[in-house]
Amino acid sequence: MAPRSSDPTGLHRVLDDATVLPQAAQRLDTTRTLWPDEVRVRVETLNLDAASYRQLERKHGGGGEAIRAEVLDIVASRGKMQNPETGSGGMLVGVVEEVGPESPLGLAVGDRIATLVSLTLTPLVIEDGLARWDGRGEQVPCDGYAVLFGRSIAAVIPDDLPAALSLSVMDVCGAPALTARVVAGYEAPIVAVIGGGGKSGSLSLAAAWQAGAARTIGVVPHEREAALLREAGLADEVVVADARDPIALRDAVTAAGGPADITVVCVDVPGCEGGAILATADRGTVIFFSMATSFSAAALGAEGVAADVTMLVGNGYVPGHAAYAMELLRTHDGVRRLFEGRLEALA
């Protein structure tokens, strides 16, 4: 039974019989009418998280129509976008169309925003059948509406950057902020970023350097991505290794100046836990910033090799994370080139 009054976590929108938070719910109430502390957003674009989209792409052999149909089915059946296989969703861009009188988010009607909370807990209705999306990319043109709760997070999109670029950055803005915080707690650490050529990885490399890393190592899966990362100038060393091969990853990081004091995992494929642990020095820290991570595999793997490392789950939120990530984009030309290159490839 739903509560009679709204809850800032969105508990009042949960339709399950059990009392669970919206992220864990099987279905959410998507009624347009707002509770006093809610905000309704007219959706322009969904940004599916990388792990979720890659899983759908593999499942359907890259077939765009099948991918689109499954996304529509998930949202229609659950009232939110939450991939049942990966458990992850993404985020959205839209325009605020109504603000409840008790909303604490500081948003106004007409604000163009990006949500900084997951689609896995955001009530969502798609009204155009995703007719403008061919299913062949993570950014999804969409007409519909979404509801934000009292404890949701959203950021107004800056006027000085293209909306698609801002969305790409805000989708992963928790990674560089947490990386910077952890690096600042060490004295000139060696930092390895697994998946350093990707969105969260490139921002994390820039954040590590800015926060005082003595050496940065970017790990990528193939030479083409290595060349792009070297050209961007974001890492002292760039190495090619399969992150799913624990020995190859350990040896590559060690040869590049490791083991790392801090290892940041930003890849969107499963099976990278063991290599990240082996690539990290005793008393070091591993930050898992991928929804493809098996946290049981990480915990048991560290125990199994007697690794004395601290393991952190990047939860996507650090105070001020959106503004920090946008500033990294503005001040690091290499980061911006990588992001713009990814967008051009998807165009």
Rank of each mutant, 00 (worst) to 15 (best):
P22E: 02
A177D: 05
F295P: 05
G137D: 09
C272T: 15
A256W: 12
A177T: 01
A180R: 09
R215F: 02
L178V: 08
I157D: 05
R283D: 00
V220E: 00
A163W: 03
V172G: 05
W35S: 11
V147K: 14
M81W: 09
D282C: 08
N315G: 08
E44P: 01
V117I: 14
L205C: 04
G61L: 09
A131I: 10
V125I: 09
D7S: 06
C142S: 08
A276F: 02
D245G: 06
M81H: 11
G271I: 10
L92Q: 07
Q23Y: 14
A154K: 13
R54D: 03
W209K: 15
V318P: 00
V265Q: 12
I262W: 11
L72K: 08
S166N: 13
I67V: 13
D134P: 11
Q55M: 07
D128P: 11
P158E: 09
L165P: 07
A18S: 14
E187Y: 13
R78F: 01
D17G: 12
G61T: 06
G144W: 10
D236I: 01
R244A: 12
A279Q: 05
E44Q: 15
A66G: 02
L15C: 01
Q82N: 05
A208C: 00
L234C: 08
R230K: 07
D17C: 05
G233V: 07
R283Y: 04
V239H: 10
R283F: 10
A226L: 06
A2V: 13
S200T: 05
L148V: 01
L92E: 05
P189R: 02
L161M: 15
P270A: 14
I157F: 04
A50W: 07
T122M: 00
D171S: 14
E237Y: 03
A51R: 13
A255T: 11
E44S: 13
S290H: 03
A298Q: 04
E273S: 03
E65Q: 15
K80Q: 10
A18L: 12
E127G: 06
D160W: 11
E85A: 15
A256F: 12
A66T: 08
A235I: 09
L229W: 11
D282T: 12
A24P: 00
R68T: 07
V71T: 06
P3Y: 04
G195S: 06
G63F: 07
E127P: 08
